[in-house]
Design a protein around this nucleic acid. Structure first.
Length: 506
DNA sequence: CGGTATTGTAGCGCTAGTTAAGCGAGTACCGGAAGGT
């Protein structure tokens, strides 16, 4: 088995050896076992499903969270000569989509969004294929986004059943044991072979700086940025703050190329900024959590958290974007006492309030009574009930789960609705508590007096590796002499030209 | 003190014409594509 895999690796990628974990995961996949792979970030994950797609008969379906990730993959593969690859998403026009769907069996590898898998026709067509492997890429999204934000992730379990239970491969770079369990559970309680590799990095040092106000925060940030010539990412929980701080950096440190990035920007601008950062033309990115997935840059040296994420998992993920080349890197958290209000607010905002749920049910009941069993559009709903689109989708998923909604229609039953109201209120309360506990854990980490590396990973891994170089402020390390060591590695000045050319002409 | 606060996909698209609506188009498994010489 392993020689065949190695030959495949040589033939399709030109590599002699597998990277950590790849071979183990591939062997499990080739034996058609459900597999969970948690692999340190880098280029290695896609080999785990691309190789089976090239080597065996039948289709490989890859569920991917972002259009840009799908497009990148397809572009790269096509550039390397693999034509039997496609992405099925809203970039395509109706005709293009139909064309792909018509000739589905001509593709070995098909990328789709979880939302697309809710399209009945797409499912019908997929059912006619022989699916050799169903892949969920960036599988932590199931846990991180599934419950509230993108509920179609929770519907994947049903999709897998509808597709006659093909072998499933869930892949991610970071997943704590809790997230790992979540993934398996939410994919339909699958029994999976687990291949988990440690996610702590010995080359990242952790620092937390308490400041009194925003001005001090900015000063601290600018002082840190002054020390570097190499790429840095600064995370914010607010779009406007990301933008305004980018302006402050440009004004104070004109020698640094700095830009901002968040989900409210035009797609074109987002792609441009990300590519400029990857190509080394931008040193500092002020961004929200929108910046990250698909940002595969090796030499990021500094991650600053201007605001804090609402859980340790997100924090680990964001910090993990530094030092992928193994070079010494630094995470700095800046916090001032009031900062906790933001994540609390964001948590509250995701979940609907009791009153809103009651109002919604009353409104829907009146519609049913008037003979309208079909679901109202969100645009109509928002005129009567004050809920966000995210909250509406969350409730919609829950109503379907409780058989209050079937197809696009409301099913009324006095008892069923009453029971639903009770259970949904409990569920929402449970989610809220759970998220606040996660936030509390993050908070404890900030205030901890023990080794930050231990405190961050101890719950997640049996053994936390020793730091290579600096460890953390609680272990007595400082950043005063940091400039010297980081300046040793000269930035690669010619690199970006080649990279850009590669981007343009691939 | 008061403001402030994330994350993404899909939707049918085009046209004509300026604010609605009609039209064209299209997916059935079973096996070697399709473009370059």
């Amino acid at each position: 088995m392993s020689t065949a895999l190695q030959q495949g690796l040589q033939r399709f990628y030109g590599y002699e050896r597998f990277r950590t974990g790849q071979e183990e995961i591939l062997e499990s996949v080739m034996q058609n076992r459900h597999t969970l792979g948690v692999l340190p970030t880098g280029t290695g994950k896609s080999v785990c499903y691309q190789l089976p797609a090239f080597m065996r008969g039948g289709q490989v379906i890859v569920v991917s969270p972002l259009l840009s990730l799908m497009e990148d993959q397809v572009k790269q593969l096509r550039a390397r000569g693999f034509k039997r690859v496609a992405a099925l998403n809203s970039f395509l026009g109706f005709e293009e989509k139909q064309q792909i769907l018509r000739k589905l069996q001509h593709y070995d590898l098909l990328y789709v969004s979880p939302e697309m898998l809710q399209n009945e026709f797409v499912i019908q067509r997929l059912q006619q294929l022989h699916i050799q492997l169903f892949v969920v890429d960036e599988a932590h999204c199931i846990s991180q986004w599934g419950q509230e934000f993108r509920t179609d992730y929770l519907r994947l379990a049903e999709v897998i059943r509808t597709l006659d239970n093909p072998p499933v491969l869930a892949l991610t770079g970071t997943a704590t044991p809790e997230v790992q369990a979540d993934i398996q559970h939410l994919l339909g309680d699958l029994e999976m072979d687990e291949h988990i590799y440690p996610m702590d990095r010995e080359n990242i040092a952790y620092f937390v700086r308490e400041v009194q106000d925003q001005q001090e925060k900015n000063e601290t940030m600018l002082a840190l940025l002054k020390k570097i010539q190499e790429p840095a990412i600064i995370y914010f929980s607010s779009r406007t703050m990301a933008e305004s701080t980018a302006a402050i950096i440009r004004a104070n440190l004109p020698e640094l190329a700095c830009a901002y990035y968040h989900g409210g920007m035009e797609n074109e601008d987002r792609i441009l900024i990300q590519q400029q950062f990857l190509a080394g033309q931008l040193q500092v990115i002020c961004c929200t959590s929108a910046f990250g997935m698909g940002v595969d840059k090796e030499d990021v040296r500094l991650i600053i958290h201007y605001h804090l994420p609402s859980d340790k998992e997100s924090f680990i993920q964001e910090v993990g974007r530094a030092g992928r080349d193994g070079g010494e890197s630094v995470s700095v958290v800046l916090y001032s006492p009031g900062d906790w209000q933001i994540p609390v607010h964001l948590i509250e905002q995701d979940l609907p309030e009791k009153v809103s749920i009651q109002q919604l049910l009353r409104f829907l009941y009146q519609r049913v009574k008037a003979g309208h069993t079909e679901l109202p559009a969100y645009e109509l709903l928002i005129q009567h009930i004050p809920i966000s689109e995210t909250q509406w989708r969350f409730l919609l998923y829950q109503m379907e789960k409780h058989d209050i909604v079937k197809g696009n229609h409301l099913q009324y039953g006095a008892k069923a609705w009453k029971d639903f109201l009770d259970s949904i209120e409990k569920f929402v309360e449970g989610r809220r508590k759970h998220k606040l506990v996660q936030l509390q854990r993050m908070k404890e980490w900030v205030y901890t007096g023990t080794c930050r590396r231990q405190a961050l990973f101890a719950d997640f891994q049996h053994e936390v590796s020793q730091a290579k170089g600096r460890c953390c402020d609680n272990c007595g390390d400082t950043l005063t002499d940091w400039q010297a060591s980081s300046a040793k590695t000269q930035p690669n000045r010619t690199g970006w030209r080649e990279q850009l050319q590669h981007l343009l002409y691939q």
